[in-house]
Structures are given as C-alpha cells and as structure tokens.
Write a protein that binds this DNA or RNA. Structure first.
Lengths: 351, 351
DNA sequence: CTGAAAGCGCTAACAA
DNA sequence: TTGTTAGCGCTTTCAG
C-alpha cells in the first residue's frame, strides 16, 4: 500500500506573488515610493520612478487592484447586468464593451440573473464588489429596480433603453426616429398596408420604435399598422408571420422591432408559402446583427451604432465620476437604414 | 431662486455603506462575531449568529468580497478569457457559465484581448485580480501561453479544446468521436464522396474532428475526404462551398467543423445554384447553435452538451482547489448527432 | 520629493 | 464559544 495518507494542506495555498514591499526592497526605496510610481501624476522624482518601475518589471510586479480598490474605492471593474444574452445583438455589445474597457485598463464583471432571480438583487451585489459603475441592458425594468438605480452610490447607466422619468442615465439609439424612418421608407416606396411586430410588452425599445413607426405611417396617410406580438424571439417572429398571413388582408410591409424577430418573420413567411419576399411582402428589422446580412435572409434593417453607443456609455461613466452633481442624462444616438434584399435591393455580387 | 450653489464635493463620494463594525455595534457583539456569522460552519452560537444576521439584514449589510478576498485569497470571481465571441456558440457558453457561477455565489470576470493584444498578457492580469480560477476559451493557444497556463498559481481550465501535452486541465466534447460518428452516418446512408471544411489551422477542435472524420471515412472504405478551409466563419463557409462545387467531382456530403461555417456552406451552395441540399449534397455541422434549428437552415449537427461541459469545468475548478497535487486532467464529454433536413430528415411540423 | 505610520474592511490566529 | 490582536497589499496623510 502506497503512502497515501491525507496530507493536511493549508487551505490557502499562498499564491506566489511579489508585493510592493518586495519591489521597494529591490529598488532600495520605501513602499510609498512604489505606490507613487504606479500612481499617475504623483509627486515622485523621475529617477526614483524609473528605478522602481524597472525593479517592478524585473519581478513581474503589478499593484493588486483589489487592495488598491479597498482604499481608493476604485476597483477598476465595471459591472454589466445583462438579461437577454440569447438575442445576438447583445453578445456584440458585450464584446465591444469588454474591449473598450480593456483598452482603458478596466475590466467587465458580468452579472446575469439566475433562473427566477430578480434583477434587483444583482445591483447591491455588484456594488459590494466595488465596481466603478453599472451598465444595465435589460428590456424590462421594474419600478423598484428603477428606484434602486436612481439611488445607487455608483453611476448606473441604462444601455439600449430609456426611462420616461429620466432619473437614470441612459444611452440609446434613437428608436423613435428609426421607427419613423422605416415608415417613411415604406410609404415612399409605395407600400400600403404596414404591420408592426412588437417585442416584449414592457420594453422601451419596442415601445419607442412602434411609436415612431405609427407616427410616420400616419403622417404619410397610410392606414394605422396592423399589430402583433413577437416576444423579441425568433419563434415569436415565425408565429407573428403566421398570424399576419392568415389575415383577410395581409400586410405588404412588416416592421419587426428587432432583427431576430424579423428573421423569424422571414422564415415564417417561407413556411406558410404562397407569398414571397420582397415581391409580395417587405420585411424590415432593427439592430443589424450579423445574420441579417446572410444571403438566406438578406434583411433590410435599421443599424444601431454599437461603437458609438458604447463610447457614449463610457463617456457618461467618466463624467459621472468627475462632475459633481452628476445629473442623470439620456443620450440618443442616430442609427441608419441598411437596405437589403428583403425590401427589393439587389444582392451584392461579391460573397 | 432655489439655493442652487455649487456644492464642493470630495472626488471620492465615500460610498455610504455599513461595515462589519456597524453591524457589530448594532448587534452588541464583536467584529469577529460578525465575521463568523457570515462564515459557513464557523464556531458560533446559534443565538449570536441569529442576532448578527438580523442586525445585518436590518442595515442591509453584506461582507465586502474584496476585503475578504484580500485575506482568504478567494475573491469569489472566476476569470473567463474569451477570444471568439463572434461565434454564436460562445455567447451561450458565456451565459451558461455566468449563471452556473452565480448560483454558487461567484461572479465571472470577462477578459477579451484587445485588438492586437496577445492572450498571454491577460493571464497575469486576471491573476492579479485574485480570481479563483481561469477558464480559457480560445481556438488557438501559443506555446508560450501553454507554459503560462501550466505554471499559473491558480487553476486554469481550457474549455472546448485540449492540449496534446496534457499539462493543462481541459474540458472538451469528444471531438474525435463526433467526427467519426458523422463519417459513419454518411457511410451508412450511402454517401460516397465526403468533404471536410476545416476551421482555424491551429485549433485542436478542428483538428480532432477532422481526425475522427478521416478515420471513420476510411474505416467505412470511402475515399479520403476532400479538404478545404473555412476559418470558422460564415463567410469562410460560403467560400468553401464555392470551392467544393467548382470541382470536377463535387462532394455529396460535407462536414463543416462548426455550425457557423456549415450555415455559410448552406448559403454558399444556394448561391452557386444547380445543386440542392439534401437531394444532391448533405451538410452537417458541429455545435448545435440556435440558428441551426431555424427552418431556413435546418442543419443536421453534432450537439455539444454545454451544460455538462460547464458542470465538468466547475467540478475541475473545485477539485483543483481542494485536492492537493491537482494534477491536470482532461475531461471528454460525449455529444450526439441531431438529424435535421440538411441530411434528409423531415422538417418537424410544429412551428 | 520622500519615508513613517495609519488604516481601507475583513479574517484568522491566539487566548480567555 | 467569544473577544482581542495582527495583519492581507495597498494608498494616503503627515512630517521631514
């Protein structure tokens, strides 16, 4: 029998890492000097700084962000509370955001509510981690959550949605303008029977896109759009298409409140058969996710300028830190219509 | 006019939060008692614990994970290093992983390499945040990175790839078995000219799937598969389809190393025209992403059991913490073929 | 410009 | 079982 006794190990394996004290010793300076060398524009002599930095480099030392955060209240982390990761729009947001933060030396901490967990419980949790800001992407937001956001001790920014009360900062594509632009596009190209596929009931994005769409449609003297719901999902879009095509007077132009539903609508129309896109029906989405450009769908859509939106979010985060009263502000960035085959534009030639 | 003078506020707004000392005072106990009340199975009287907990609840107190982490070396965070977020397979992984961790009271910290940043530089960065483990999902991994992983002071787990040297723990679908299963499927159903669309050159997933596929094809006495590359992207898949169809003897069964390429292949075949799926050509992918089930594609694919894989990853993370030598181990979980229309299965009736 | 000392919020030894 | 005492690794007054 081998010597297989249970070795008693300290639970803490004591990670082998150099501390500021080590660097100080190596550079022949005090610990504070090391700290100052890593603090932007701290009062330290160029020579000392150089000595510290080279010693640190030799040892592979980096200040421990957690210990630093304990004092400065800046952990270098930004929380991202995300609910609908299944919508392909959000992974792109996530990636763009993570990269943008990474470029500024910050990291993103991702919080996704568990099964039946309310979003509210995540906010204090995130805050307890000392994050410098919280970005929330969630189609719906309970009023309790809104209050929690407004009173949070760190800047909270709503991404891709707004709040009517305006008490929480938000960055959003101009959804109303987008909806109106699509309506005008339909009207100018001779479409006569518009339809709207709504997303989740409480979602401000869906609401505003619909509002703009209705306004634009009426301004162009078209009949008010037929309305069905699609839950912001592919299957919901398919279902919506089935409903619309089963009507006495099916629409000749469908605007779905987001791309994933629009793709579902396209597949739904195909499945029902009889009517074709774009000959009989036009379909337009919103977001411009990658799949919208795939030949099978070739979907006309209103592109959200993700980069611009992320940039504005970071700007808001920054200004909330520096400016004193930090009044909540809502930033609307414009998007633009990308015409593709689902509204009759010819397919581009190159693959 | 209201009293609207510019209040001079300290740049550090001194977040209003209660500390263990506050709770201790409120409950009439020592600070350590508070600590113990929040430490699982610490020696504390039931009554004391109850008093502390109720006081804490009243004040809305939660232990600061950062301060705790400074001592325990357990920050409650797990790092996720991710490179290809564009592949729809990974957002699902990300979400599943975040949720699974969240259920265990841990959080995921996401690290995505910036523009030209090498993956290597992220590892020490993650470690400096005191994460309890690092999970890496990256198709390719430089040898320098491999060494860094092997020597990291915290458990590092490769997700969805393996390392031949076996020096780093890994969780992976049994790619070779998957490739072989697809080959057998082709052979049994009378396909005669197989083709393989490879992903990124250095990716172990593509390599192993190909290896199994070739083995299975040869075992079934079929000719060695035609081979083209697709870069693991949709466009790459389209391109690959064009190449394959331009050959003198186009294949009658294509296996693409992942779903996103397979979708590209399908669209590529459509665009070229002339040959149809599944009548003339069969197409099979790997992953089973959501879009594979969409009617437009209806793609037969080898499903990776994400939940199982995540569970194994967490198990490995746990055991690396508790078990002493923590030898690196590779876990292969089985997947299974999902037959759909791209190989002749009838479309399910319900939407 | 620099170092010594205090302490961020918490846990883990040690006695009591 | 409890409270007291040291720190975790770092920043930040405060003297010098």
């Amino acid at each position: 029998m081998p010597t297989d006794f249970k070795r008693k190990v300290p639970r803490k394996p004591k990670i082998e890492r150099f501390t500021a004290a080590d660097v100080a010793r190596a550079a022949g300076v005090s610990i504070s000097a090391v700290s100052r060398a890593f603090t932007p524009n701290a009062s330290i002599a160029k020579a000392t700084k150089a000595r510290v930095l080279s010693a640190a480099d030799r040892l592979g030392y980096h200040p421990n962000p957690l210990a630093r955060g304990l004092i400065t209240q800046r952990s270098g982390m930004v929380a991202l509370l995300m609910t609908e990761v299944t919508n392909p729009f959000y992974p792109t947001v996530l990636e763009t955001f993570a990269r943008a933060l990474s470029d500024r030396g910050k990291q993103v901490m991702l919080f996704t509510p568990a099964e039946d967990e309310p979003l509210e419980s995540l906010l204090p949790q995130a805050i307890s981690y000392g994050v410098e800001g919280v970005v929330i992407t969630s189609a719906t937001l309970s009023s309790k959550m809104q209050a929690a956001c407004a009173n949070a001790p760190v800047p909270v920014i709503l991404f891709n949605r707004t709040l009517d009360c305006g008490e929480v900062s938000a960055v959003c594509c101009d959804n109303e303008a987008g909806g109106r632009a699509i309506a005008q596009f339909f009207a100018q190209r001779g479409r006569r029977r518009p339809a709207f596929v709504a997303g989740l009931p409480g979602a401000s994005t869906s609401l505003h896109r619909e509002r703009g769409f209705i306004a634009g449609v009426l301004e162009a003297s078209l009949p008010a759009p037929i309305r069905v719901e699609g839950q912001f999902t592919f299957d919901g879009g398919m279902q919506a298409a089935a409903e619309l095509l089963a009507m006495d007077q099916p629409p000749d132009a469908i605007f779905a409140a987001n791309d994933i539903m629009a793709l579902g609508v396209l597949d739904g129309i195909r499945r029902v058969g009889g009517l074709g896109v774009p000959d009989d029906i036009w379909v337009v989405g919103f977001d411009d996710i990658a799949a919208a450009a795939w030949p099978s769908f070739d979907l006309t859509t209103f592109r959200q300028p993700i980069n611009r939106m992320i940039a504005e979010t970071l700007r808001l985060l920054d200004s909330a830190e520096t400016e004193v009263p930090a009044l909540p502000s809502t930033v609307l960035v414009p998007g633009r219509l990308i015409e593709r085959g689902s509204t009759g534009a010819p397919l581009p030639l190159t693959p």
